[in-house]
Amino acid sequence: MKLLKSVFVSSVMLAASAFALANNDTINGAGSTFAHPLYSKWAEEFRKESGIRVNYQAIGSGGGIRQITAKTVDFGASDAPLTDDKLNREGLIQFPTAMGAIVPVVNIPGVAPGAMKLTGKVLADIYLGNIKKWNDERITALNPGLNIPGQPIYVVHRSDGSGTTFTFTDYLSRVNEQWKNEIGVNTDITWPRKATTIGGNGNAGVASFVRRTRGAIGYVEYAYAKQNSLTHTQLASAEGTFLQPSMETFQAAAANADWANTSNFYLLLNNQPGANSWPITAATFILLHKDQADAAKTKSMLDFFEWSYAQGDQHAIALDYIPMPENVSVMVADSLRQLTVNGQPVSQ
């Protein structure tokens, strides 16, 4: 009995201390799977310096938005920015933390990585099923001197809803009228029936189908294409120059993005101006409630974001993310001053 009692007491104390820990020194976030490797790395490094624990769960952007709306987490993370309308309705603010790029990958016998040139319009026509063979003259015209076989094209897409699909379809609808009018933009769409489509689960699924299906084309995050040495293509910038996917062309796109003239950082980064800007890039966003309930926690959270803007770039680059340009971090710091705790401004 005595033993039982002491077990009971100690377990209550343990639970209480875990609860206290969870309350004061832990920030909980959830959302975007794309940002997960970066936020986990930031959380790990930040904890070493400050002792504050940041838990991040990669449950998907849609889940992140639902969780922050329901206030079950301290911050949400989404790959697609929310509109002013939605932000105001839920009392949220948002800001970008890092960017990623999407690259087309192909499997055509005899075509080396980076050898094939595509324009956005032709890429959309391939996904629409208007171009069904690799030796179609719309493709060969862009690639004089490249020996392309008459392989039928298999179009590989994500079968799960994803921010990658959102960014990719947004790009296609910017560069192709037919795509814009007939297909549209979403995390998950009805893929054109004219094309021969294959749906892969996650980046891994898409990569797997592209790698082993002759004649396949797919789209994956740059980090994924690089780490798995897939055959990427060149892509035409908004100004028509052909670019290789690389940290330089991604950063050029980031630098040319016009963040200053946005409201609540609502900006889709595809097809940015500049002859050197890789055309398919996207930022990933953090969502916070404008009015916070807990002063200590808000302070920890602000410390974390401040730290990640000041010290996080090297980790982002190491993980193949593109850090935000300097001028954006100033704007984000400004925007975070809107935060209040129970109606009172946060004392920094």
Binding site: G63, I65, S159, R193, G199
Partner: peptide, 29 residues
């Protein structure tokens, strides 16, 4: 294969109820 269509060919990608829910719910807004 995650394609929302009905085809006679059994080699074509299709979708099932539970796989559609699992794949789309996370990102549905």
């Amino acid at each position: 294969g995650g394609a929302n269509r009905i085809e006679t060919s059994l080699f074509m990608p299709a979708s099932s109820i539970s796989s559609t829910i699992a794949q789309q719910f996370n990102e549905a807004t």
